[in-house]
């Protein structure tokens, strides 16, 4: 009997803790937005963060975009040529990249490349009591440390996703047209007639923006909320990557069901 009550109270404790953490995350987000204005007055701070999360992610994003495009080109051609419609290869590559793969894969890479380092940085600043020291000197750590990292991620993410898609289309072109020999004109013209600017490209940008907000928020929050020990920081980094990946995929489903309803 006591084991059952213990188990139930333990479960209740865990649930309570999770909900309290969610509440803190919501409060944290509002605080972040409130102090953003203050941090924008020193915009070079944000530019520095765009450099660290955006520019330094360029290599991994461009290379994986190229490879995803190459694979799509090969696999797509393999299937399409069975139905005698290899000319539609451009459509397949461009639609799957702009609608889904571009935003989602770029966001997953971004979460593991830039999100984790942001969490590590803020977590270590907390562990070495730099955040407390800032507070002592009347420098708000929200405005000085957290907000620039958040906005740096939000600004970088749509740009990185667009580069990923563009690179992927180029990869598909390389495989389809240059190596296999799909007709050059058909590749581009069929792509242009089926890819809609508003429906496909703008929706992809909206998706990547939402993912950017989600990943950056999770990264800065996990860092800020981490237990200030070596172990706590490493756990926070793991949580950032796992939670970001889950959030990206879940949000992608929700956004897709809003954006493409049987069209």
């Amino acid at each position: 009997m006591t084991r059952v009550t213990e188990w139930v109270s333990g479960l209740g404790h865990v649930v309570n803790e999770k909900i309290a953490r969610l509440g803190f995350a919501a409060r944290f987000f509002v605080m972040l937005l409130v102090y953003s204005g203050q941090s924008f007055r020193r915009f070079p701070l944000t530019i520095r963060e765009i450099y660290f999360s955006g520019v330094l992610s360029l290599l991994i994003i461009l290379v994986s975009g190229l490879f995803v495009g190459l694979v799509l080109g090969l696999q797509g051609y393999e299937t399409l040529q069975r139905y005698g419609s290899a000319d539609a290869l451009g459509v397949l590559v461009a639609l799957s990249l702009t609608r889904e793969l571009g935003p989602v894969v770029a966001a997953l890479l971004f979460a593991s490349r830039a999100g984790s380092s942001v969490t590590a940085e803020i977590g270590l600043m907390k562990a070495t009591e730099q955040l407390t020291a800032m507070d002592m000197m009347a420098v708000n750590p929200m405005a000085r440390v957290v907000a620039p990292r958040f906005w740096g991620g939000v600004i970088s993410m749509p740009l990185l996703a667009a580069m990923f898609s563009a690179m992927g289309v180029f990869g598909g072109y390389l495989i389809g047209v240059v190596f296999i020999g799909v007709d050059d004109g058909a590749f581009w013209s069929q792509m242009q007639s089926s890819v809609d600017f508003r429906q496909d490209i703008i929706n992809g940008v909206i998706k990547s923006f939402v993912f950017g907000v989600a990943v950056s928020l999770i990264a800065v929050f996990e860092g800020y909320d981490s237990t200030p020990t070596a172990e706590g920081v490493s756990r926070a980094i793991t949580r950032t990557v796992v939670t970001s990946a889950l959030a990206i995929l879940a949000l992608d489903f929700v956004l897709t069901s809003f954006m493409f309803r049987g069209l």
Partner: peptide
């Protein structure tokens, strides 16, 4: 990259 997507890939 966005312009490339809009003009070359899309039908803007």
């Amino acid at each position: 990259a966005l312009l490339f997507l809009a003009l070359k890939v899309g039908n803007l």
